[in-house]
Structure formats: structure tokens, C-alpha cells
Write a protein that binds this DNA or RNA. Structure first.
Lengths: 199, 199
DNA sequence: CACACAATCGGACCTTGGTCCGTTTAGTAA
DNA sequence: TTACTAAACGGACCAAGGTCCGATTGTGTG
């Protein structure tokens, strides 16, 4: 039962009203602060609304769900990450061979996870992961790299599998419960990529 | 007036009281029926309790959480699956080469998912997946097969990755949203195994 | 059988994510 | 400035998972 993740329609010809913009900014700012102060999982939507001086209805009208709020808080970092992939320096950006770009992509995403795993976990809560914009971007990026390196493979299936390794839930489990150090996860990713794309 | 203090007997094999056993059976039976009738995600815990003629407290005392109830309903099928792995016919059971056993394992688990994906999804809800007994069993099984075939690999990481492909959430997404047929997932699994364990 | 007590029962209660809808307000045109 | 309307507001409300604790009952013991 996947839910639509679409935010309220933003029409190009009707700009956001001033109070709406102000409340959106207040909510984002408050949420980021509360998440940082007390941990994502210890902050309820009611608290965010109250601290931001906004009604609960407004909060949900703007962001739709808790997962979407988490995604919104992450959006700047996500955007800069995507920017580095599209136009940044190799090996993460264009120019390096596909296998090296894939390795770099995983390392960079693991880095992002290291800093914001709880936020990413909240953002992926429920079935929200697969329908989200970042996931779609990552999937497409990986599929293109895989096809470039090996046109014969089933890039869609392989991309999903590789991305599954980078899910926030698995990451947190391996880090916190199994206590694997980040370097091991990075090495595991690299080994994985080299299995999928042998030289 | 004072009696010698009897320590409460805490026996590992303390038998279940008759009413407890009766209620447990009633709940399991009712839950299985309701899940089958209306779909797992459309049945609330209150309904299960009411239909079973049991208080909500009793329901949660017995099963702890919705995810655990789903796991309990699945337990027979899980047990027979594990039995087939441990003592069944090859290639799922012992006797076949590791790579073939791994392929058979994935195919069998995909089969289980095809029939009960919604139940498995409920069973894995939240972080429940990684700590569950079936997951631990699957992980161990895969790790042993990987080590047998290639003692040099990082079996723990690879096992988690392979299992991630068989998660209920990804399965449902690929089947329902991306509309991939079961055969494609099965072929994808086999290709994956052959990448991880090249002949 | 009567008793004691621990295990169990069950529903009131709490929390929290999410919805609804009557009220308020920003933007606009006259 | 005033009037009008679409958009936004906000808090009461709902559903559902999960907890608590006083009442109840099964079971071993004398």
C-alpha cells in the first residue's frame, strides 16, 4: 500500500502566498533544530508544529507526512549531492570510468548516511523509499553506469540490489547492531561493485 | 504471620496456563482468517482482538506487536521452509554445490514472498526485520554457503546484500509498482548469485 | 474442598501520525 | 479603501498501535 508522495500542487502561475512561505521556512528551521537537538525519532510532529508556532493542519498541508518532512529537511544536502554527481569532479562526477564512478557514488552515499542516517531512515519510513525523488535519481544514475559498462546486464535489477545495500535501515543495523566500522562498509561496497562489474 | 520468603519459581519450561493456550490459539486462528479475508493491511489489532473474543491487553501480552503477530501467523510456513533447507532434497537442501543451493534458496524465498508478501511486509515492519529469527537463519545459511564456495570473500556483507534483494518491501515494489513478473525476479536472483560466485 | 497466589485477562487510557472543516487572511481589482 | 475570493490556517477530531493496572481465574497445596 504505497502512498503518493506528491506535495500539494504548486502551480507555476500562482506563486506561494507570503504566510505560506514564512510558515514553511519556520517549520523547516524548527524541524532541523529539534532533530539535531534530540534525535529524529524523539521528535513528534505535534512538537514540530508547536515549536514552529504553526497549526498541525498547516504542517501536514505543507509536507504531507513525517517522511516527507524529513526529506524536505534533507533536501539541500540531497541537492548538493546530486549536483556533485551530475556536474562535479570525477570520479563521482562525469569523466571517470563507470566502475570507478559507481564506487565513488557508494562511498559518497555512505558518507551521507554516516552523518544523517536517522533522518534518512525517517525519510524512507514505510514504503516512502521507493517512490521518492532521490531514490529515482540514484536508481537512474546507477542504471546508466551499469548499462554503459555492460550493456548485456539486467541493469534495473542490479541497480535495485546495489541500492538496497545503501538503505538507511540496513546501514543503521550494520553500524549500530553489528558494529561494523564505516571502512568495512565502504570496502564491502567496492567489492560488490567489482563483482557486478568485473574488469 | 510472616512466612519464609518463597522465591517465585522461574522455570524455563513453565507450562502455559490453559486459558493462555486457548487464547493464543484463538488469536492465531482469527488473525490468519482475517488477514486472508481482507488483506493484512486492512486488519487492525483491535479487530483481531474483538473477533477472537479477547482483550487487547491479552493480544499484546501474547504477541508483543503487530509485526510479531504477523511472524507468528507465518511461523508454520517459515518452519517448514527452514526444514526443507536443513534436511530437504537438494538443491535447496544439503548435497548440491553452494552456488546451486543459493540459487534454490532465493527461488524458494521468492516463492514464499509471492504467496505472502503482505504478511512478510507486516512482519518486517519498522526495524523488526533484522532482529527476527528467520532473518538470522537466512543470514547464517547464506554466509555458510558463501564461505564454502569462496573462503576469501566478506561473507557477512555479501549475505546482507543478497538478503536485501529478497526483502518484502523491495519485492512488493518491484512486483506491484514496477510490474516485474516473478520470472524476471527469479532470473535476476540467479544472475546475482552467479556474479557473486562465478564458476 | 478451601485457600493462596501467581499468571492471565481485558478494557480504559496514552501517544502519535494523519484528516477535516469552519475561520482567517493575503492578494487583487475597482 | 473596500469588497471579494482563493488559499492558507489551526485545532478538534480520528484511527490504530501499544501500555497499565485492577479484576479475574487457573493451579498447586494442605
Amino acid at each position: 500500500m504505497l502512498k503518493s508522495v506528491d506535495l500539494p500542487q504548486i502551480r507555476a502561475d500562482s506563486p506561494e502566498r507570503a504566510d505560506a512561505a514564512r510558515n514553511r521556512a519556520r517549520v523547516l528551521c524548527t524541524a532541523e533544530r529539534l532533530f539535531a537537538e534530540r534525535g529524529v525519532s524523539c521528535v513528534s510532529m505535534d512538537e514540530v508544529a508547536r515549536e514552529a508556532g504553526v497549526g498541525k493542519g498547516t504542517l501536514f498541508r505543507r509536507f504531507g507526512s513525517r517522511a516527507a518532512l524529513a526529506r524536505a529537511v534533507l533536501s539541500e544536502r540531497e541537492a548538493s549531492f546530486q549536483e556533485r554527481i551530475i556536474r562535479g569532479e570525477p570520479p563521482l562526477g562525469p569523466g571517470a570510468p563507470p566502475r570507478e564512478r559507481l564506487v565513488a557514488f557508494g562511498h559518497a552515499l555512505l558518507e551521507l548516511l554516516s552523518g544523517h542516517a536517522d533522518l534518512l531512515l525517517a525519510a524512507e519510513h514505510g514504503g516512502a523509499r521507493f517512490g521518492s525523488a532521490p531514490y529515482a535519481f540514484y536508481r537512474l544514475h546507477i542504471e546508466l553506469l551499469l548499462r554503459e559498462a555492460d550493456p548485456g546486464c539486467d541493469a534495473e535489477i542490479l541497480a535495485e540490489t546495489l541500492l538496497a545495500f545503501l538503505g538507511a535501515d540496513l546501514f543503521l543495523y550494520l553500524r549500530k547492531v553489528r558494529e561494523m566500522p564505516p571502512e568495512r562498509l565502504a570496502a564491502g561496497w567496492e567489492a560488490l561493485v567489482r563483482l557486478v562489474l568485473p574488469s
